[in-house]
């Protein structure tokens, strides 16, 4: 787990990219991880070609959640909302590398969950739980 805190992760944590909020976003969503209180909001603007033209994220939380959201924000421009909504956990794990302990997986996935929720217009499932068998209650 300590291997996770690489130079570029700390850089994204301390100097998050695309940090802030858009004045009139076409899609926006905010959510928190109730387990730890980390909070992230994603704002997306969509151009006439139907593709994301601008992106901002805001929030507060741990290095894993904030760096993951920052790196994700850099990869969203040019995608359609449908493409954003379809993103899977690999889109984050490829950026942040391996070594996230199970206890911290939700921290890494929070930004992606919120970005997908913004694109869907409704709360998305946790990306790391997609494809799992639905829990019978």
């Amino acid at each position: 787990m300590d291997d996770f805190y690489k130079e570029y992760i700390l850089d994204h944590y301390r100097n998050p990219r695309n940090f802030g909020q858009l004045e009139s976003p076409d899609a926006t969503f905010e959510d928190l991880n109730p387990l730890c209180g980390d909070r992230i909001r994603f704002d997306l603007s969509v151009g006439p070609d139907g593709r994301v033209s601008d992106v901002r994220f805001s929030g507060k939380g741990c290095a894993i959640s904030q760096a993951s959201a920052s790196m994700l924000s850099e990869s969203l421009k040019g995608a359609t909302l449908a493409e954003v909504a379809r993103l899977g956990q690999d889109s984050v794990l490829e950026n942040v590398g391996i070594g996230i302990s199970p206890a911290r997986m939700k921290c890494a996935m929070l930004g992606l969950k919120v970005a997908k929720s913004a694109a869907l217009g409704t709360l998305a499932r946790w990306p790391d739980e997609e494809g799992a068998e639905p829990q019978s209650t």
Binding site: M1, Y5, R14, G61, A63
Partner: peptide
């Protein structure tokens, strides 16, 4: 400092 408590707890855990 600016280490989030969850990151700190993860490092202490190691």
């Amino acid at each position: 400092a600016d280490i989030h408590a969850h990151d700190l707890a993860s490092i202490l855990d190691t």
